Simulated assay, not measured.
Amino acid sequence: MAESVTVADLVDNIRLDVYYGEDLLDDRDITTSDISRPGLELTGYFNYYPAKRVQLLGITETSFAKGMSHDELLDVMRQMCQPETPAFVISTQLEPPEELLQAAKESGIPILGTKMTTSRVLSNMTNYLEGKLAERQSLHGVLVDIYGVGVLITGDSGVGKSETALELVKRGHRLIADDRVEVFQQDEQTLVGEAPAILAHLLEIRGIGIIDVMNLFGAGAVRSETDIDLIVHLEAWSPDKRFDRLGNGDETQKIFDVVVPKISIPVKTGRNLAIIIEAAAMNFRARSMGYDATKVFDENLNRLIQQNSKKNKSGKKA
């Protein structure tokens, strides 16, 4: 988990304009993903003022400010410009009030702007900051994007995770991370995985060593991050181990507060794991869209049983 993000990072990633403080961006840190819209503060209420948050002013705030006197507004803006305040953001291509510019210059706080609406820039900044400041968990495995499904491949060391990922890349799918996957929770239902910076685009194949997937297969063979939708666990085949054959198992794994569907695939000589995992991802996607092959099989089986039962009854009567 990053302890802070600089205002310069926020400007670059959200594509904000800089009204004032170009030379201050690298020195201002953002430590929380919460964004403040200072409405009560404009009325002079400062009993609780979240000074550590980015302060976002939209049409409502700037319209209210226009109705205030110069001295009153300057006093409020000076109170809002605390040493720990990272920056002010003005939405909807509005001009920042002169009083805010004066107070920000006195305190050395950047003022940023954007053409985006208040709701849009609020959402974009929150999502970016939550991703950067969220608690992270490092998992052993390989993360691959298969037909838009984020598949985390896990298993003991040497079971063939990286080799399987290489075959999947050759089949047109995209690698996110090999060996170590940095995972964070984006919201109540979404996990996001990415590669540690030192391992980005790299794949380790025993007997060959480290290969750069992007250089060998092109930029379309990699992604920087993806949601984790499905966990595929590879384990050595054993006659004593029972594996799901009908697809009606409900195995899951909880990571942070998110429960992720999980399937276990036996590893045995002659099995093409890449094709099996590819099929598992497609089957998961079909289920997400409402089609369940296991349910169809059960319905067909029940229909056949009913037909045979009717035939047996009619045969006995004859």
Rank of each mutant, 00 (worst) to 15 (best):
E235M: 12
A236D: 12
G209A: 06
G207K: 06
I208G: 05
L230E: 02
G207M: 08
V213D: 02
I208A: 10
V232W: 01
D240Q: 15
E204A: 00
I208T: 14
I208S: 08
I211C: 03
L203T: 01
V222Q: 05
I210A: 04
V213E: 07
R223Y: 06
R206W: 01
G209W: 04
I210K: 01
I211M: 05
I210V: 11
V213N: 03
A221E: 07
D227V: 04
I231V: 14
S238W: 10
I211Y: 03
F217N: 06
G220E: 12
E235Q: 14
D240N: 14
E235Y: 06
V222L: 07
I210Q: 04
G209D: 06
D227I: 01
I205C: 08
L230A: 07
G220C: 01
E204L: 00
E204I: 00
S224W: 08
L216D: 05
G220R: 11
V213I: 15
E204V: 00
I208H: 09
E204D: 10
L203N: 00
L203V: 04
E204G: 02
A219D: 11
L230F: 13
L202K: 02
I208E: 05
R206M: 00
E235K: 11
I211D: 04
H233D: 14
I208Y: 10
G218S: 08
E235H: 09
R206H: 06
A236F: 05
S224I: 11
D212R: 07
V213R: 01
L202P: 00
I211G: 01
I231P: 00
S238D: 15
I231K: 03
E225N: 12
R223K: 14
D229I: 04
F217Q: 06
E204F: 01
I228W: 06
H201P: 00
I231W: 02
D227S: 11
I208M: 14
E225D: 10
G209T: 03
D227C: 09
D240R: 13
R206T: 03
I205V: 13
G218I: 09
W237R: 08
F217G: 04
I228T: 07
D212T: 07
A221S: 15
I231C: 10
H201E: 08
D240M: 12
N215K: 14
I210D: 02
S224L: 12
S224N: 13
I205R: 12
A221L: 09
A221F: 07
H233T: 14
L202I: 06
G220W: 01
H233W: 10
L230D: 01
V222S: 04
D212N: 15
D212S: 12
F217L: 10
A221V: 09
V232A: 11
L234F: 06
P239V: 10
I208F: 14
A236T: 15
N215M: 12
E225H: 13
T226E: 09
I231H: 04
G220D: 14
I205M: 10
R223Q: 13
E225G: 00
P239L: 11
L230G: 01
D229P: 04
T226S: 14
T226D: 08
G209V: 08
V232H: 05
F217W: 12
S224Y: 06
L203H: 02
